[in-house]
Simulated scan of single mutants.
Amino acid sequence: MSAIHTNPRPVSALDPFSAEFRADPFAAYAELRATGPIVWLEQYGIWVVQHHAQVKDVLTDWRRFSNAGGGGLTNYFKEPNWRQPSIILEVDPPEHERTRKVMMRVINANAIKSLRGGFETVARRLVDAALAQGEIEAVSQLVQPFPLTVFPDAVGMPPLDREIMLVYGGMVFGAFGPRTAWYDQLMERAEEVSAWIDAHCARAALTDDGLGAGIYAAADAGEITHDEARLLVRSFLSAGVDTTIDSIGLALRALAQHPEQWALLRADPTLARNAFEEATRYDSSSQSLFRTTTESFEFAGQTLARHEKVLVLIGSAGRDPAVWDEPDRFDIRRRLTHQVGYGTGIHGCVAQMMARLEGEVFFRALAERVGTLTCTGPSQLRLVPGLRGLSSLPLALAA
């Protein structure tokens, strides 16, 4: 039954999954913010929120805006998922509390601190290799190898060819949008890729001293089952590799395109963490996510029906002039007190402190070693549904 709206319903014909929108989402965000606090996207029959205030309200109200309906366009309350739902990302309390408690204990401050030295070693090696070459395709030669090395290493995955993890990430995050020919072709490998991921998330495939072992220790203690431990390791890997790769790539492009900001970082490498934080606000891999309503209720002047999809544009919230001064300006010295780039509330990114550490270590190593950073050609964005990221970034680096 359709909802009865007491106020005129703001409507937009914009398609947030189109190549045109994805090529320049920021102009579309401004148009949506001018349309209203919540807007009906007629092409998909979904709501969208784009102001910082409403984005935060939705993300912090899990009782009315559920994660269990799925993080993408497909409504899990009405349609099945192609894979078993994540037992931490696609559930709500009380089940969510049980699994998140395990994850947060495993990824504690001491664990993150202990990873820094290994992360720094890998970052320096990759930056030195890029410097020695001089001109590189930065996505494949510098950006991707860093998270693909340090994050699975931290989880306890032994050294092996991990490129298939990027295929799996495409399947997971590509499902956030509508079905396309690109996605159908990708899903032809679903059985093979899912089997590889499951096999490498099993306890026997992991080292005894990684974060994955900590998750399995919780299973030994009876806090979760061993099958749930495998699923948590899977969720950890799927959420912690692709997002960080794309965020680092977009941040690297922003620094190369803003030489005055690169000069600031070069002069003071301790700004690396804030530079990555600002890049997450300015142009992050995670531009949007979904929630699904659990009941009919009034929100921002509109009546939302039960089990309606709500698209949450966290990328637009990061450019909201009601919160940020000169929001379209990239400023690595900006004071960031309203960040929602990692989400917020009980479903905020569970591995965000590790992502922040990776970004800080990567850009500090870069600033300490590289004098000039120059784009030698146009970068290429991926224009298919899913995470926002670069498929190529030609760069010249010199000491």
Rank of each mutant, 00 (worst) to 15 (best):
M1F: 07
S12E: 13
P25Y: 07
A30V: 05
E31M: 07
R33W: 09
R33E: 15
A34H: 09
L41S: 06
Q43Y: 09
G45T: 09
G45F: 11
W47S: 04
V49P: 03
H51L: 08
H51A: 06
K56Q: 07
V58I: 03
G71A: 14
L73S: 09
N75H: 02
F77E: 12
E79W: 02
R83C: 00
P85H: 12
I88M: 09
D92T: 08
T99R: 03
R100D: 07
S114K: 08
T121P: 03
V122I: 15
R125L: 08
A130V: 12
G134W: 07
E135Y: 09
P147Q: 11
L148A: 12
V150D: 15
V150I: 14
F151Q: 11
A154K: 06
P158C: 13
P159L: 13
M165I: 15
L186H: 08
R189Q: 14
E191Q: 15
A199D: 13
T207H: 08
D208S: 13
L211V: 14
G214H: 10
Y216V: 13
E223L: 06
H226L: 11
S238N: 15
A239H: 07
S247T: 10
G249W: 02
G249S: 04
L250F: 04
L255I: 00
W262Y: 14
W262R: 01
L265I: 08
L271I: 15
A272H: 10
A275T: 13
R281W: 03
R281I: 11
Q287E: 14
S288I: 14
L289E: 09
F299C: 00
Q302S: 09
L304F: 05
A305K: 01
L311G: 03
I314T: 12
P321I: 10
W324C: 00
D325A: 09
E326T: 13
P327W: 10
R329M: 02
I332D: 04
I332P: 00
R333E: 15
G341T: 09
T344P: 01
G348A: 15
V350G: 00
Q352E: 12
A355K: 02
F363T: 11
P385M: 00
L390A: 00
S391Q: 07
S391V: 11
L395A: 09
